[in-house]
Simulated assay, not measured.
Amino acid sequence: MTEDPKGLLAELGDLRKRARVDRHGYWLPFLLFGLITLGATPFYGPMLCADGGQNPELVEPTVCSWSSADQPWLYHWLHPTGQMSGPVFGLHQPGVAADIYWIIALLCGYLAVVWWYRWRAAQVGVETPTRLYAQVTIFMLLLPLIGVPVLSELVFGRLGWQIALPITVLLIVAATWRVRSVRFTLAVLALFALAHFVTFYPYGPMFVLAAGLAGLAYLERSVVCTVTVAIFSATVLFVNEAGRFFFYWPYAVEDFASTALPALVLLVGGIIGSVRREMAR
């Protein structure tokens, strides 16, 4: 080690850079959640049926009819205000299969990411704290499962949203204002609003994923990680809402656009992060 002050500063800068590289491990969560998002594709394909009494091999099948009254209690619990069919999901028949898949997949993914960062900390000696990521992910998993249904049943359903919404906002502000900063209060309000969208939109679970990855990007302090999360969030909104602005996907890819394109963003981000890590070694 050199005794020259400039040399010492240069070596210190190199050590800091190496520590940041060793600490970054977002590439594996990106690959994992990219595969999870891609794995959800079969749950959003349209169900086709033939009219009663007709041979499905002789006539062109049409989209099966759907009614929320035919759904089990779990569907109504998870979607207390119903579920919207967006432009891309217009042919999708809502059901509990996709909900169960996302709940299990996101929970397993969350546990895998926490284990991954703790394992890496033991290997490289530099730990990325996962507390914020865990808090955001658990918060966003519990709100659609318990918080929104309970609020809808006990508060919004009885008082009406005109009265219940201001009361809910005031309670959140009162509970968080003195404990944390204004920024924390605004973040909690945003997550509560996001949790409602999770129950309302068919692609809502990807909001949960985006929120968890945003917390991860905040911890990683990585440009690639942050940009990837931003592009992923924008892609989720674009591919599912573009039809409202009269942009429609080709029929051949319509059934896959809602999940495959956001998954591709995460997979590419994970690959780039892995390559950058290897090049920096």
Rank of each mutant, 00 (worst) to 15 (best):
M1R: 10
E3S: 12
E3G: 01
D4V: 02
P5W: 00
P5M: 01
L8K: 14
L9P: 01
E11A: 15
L12A: 15
L12S: 09
L15Y: 07
K17Y: 04
K17V: 02
R18M: 13
R18E: 13
R20N: 13
R20H: 14
D22N: 13
G25A: 10
Y26M: 13
F33M: 15
F33N: 11
T37P: 05
F43H: 12
Y44L: 08
Y44M: 04
G45I: 07
M47F: 08
D51V: 09
G52D: 14
P56F: 06
E57W: 11
C64L: 00
C64F: 06
S65V: 09
P72A: 04
L74I: 15
L74Y: 10
T81Q: 11
T81A: 15
S85H: 12
G86W: 11
G86I: 13
F89W: 10
G90K: 14
L91E: 13
L91R: 14
G95L: 09
A98P: 06
D99A: 09
W102Q: 07
I103G: 05
I103R: 08
I104F: 10
C108H: 02
C108I: 15
G109V: 04
G109F: 03
Y110M: 15
L111M: 10
V113R: 03
V113E: 01
V114Y: 02
W115G: 00
W116E: 02
Y117D: 09
R118D: 14
W119A: 15
W119R: 15
R120Q: 15
R120S: 05
Q123R: 15
Q123G: 00
G125N: 11
E127Y: 08
F139E: 03
F139H: 00
M140D: 00
M140N: 04
L143P: 01
L154Y: 06
R158L: 12
W161M: 14
I163H: 09
A164D: 09
P166G: 08
I167Y: 06
V173C: 11
R183K: 12
F184R: 05
V188H: 01
V188A: 11
A193M: 08
F200D: 10
F200E: 13
P202W: 04
G204Q: 07
M206F: 00
V208A: 03
A211Y: 11
G212Q: 08
L213V: 09
G215S: 09
L219S: 14
V223Y: 10
T226F: 13
V227P: 08
V229A: 03
I231S: 01
A234N: 00
A234E: 01
F238D: 02
V239S: 05
E241L: 14
F245I: 10
W249A: 12
A252H: 11
V253Q: 00
A257G: 03
S258M: 11
L261S: 02
L261R: 05
P262E: 05
I271Y: 03
I272N: 02
R277I: 07
M279G: 02
M279F: 12
A280K: 12
R281W: 06
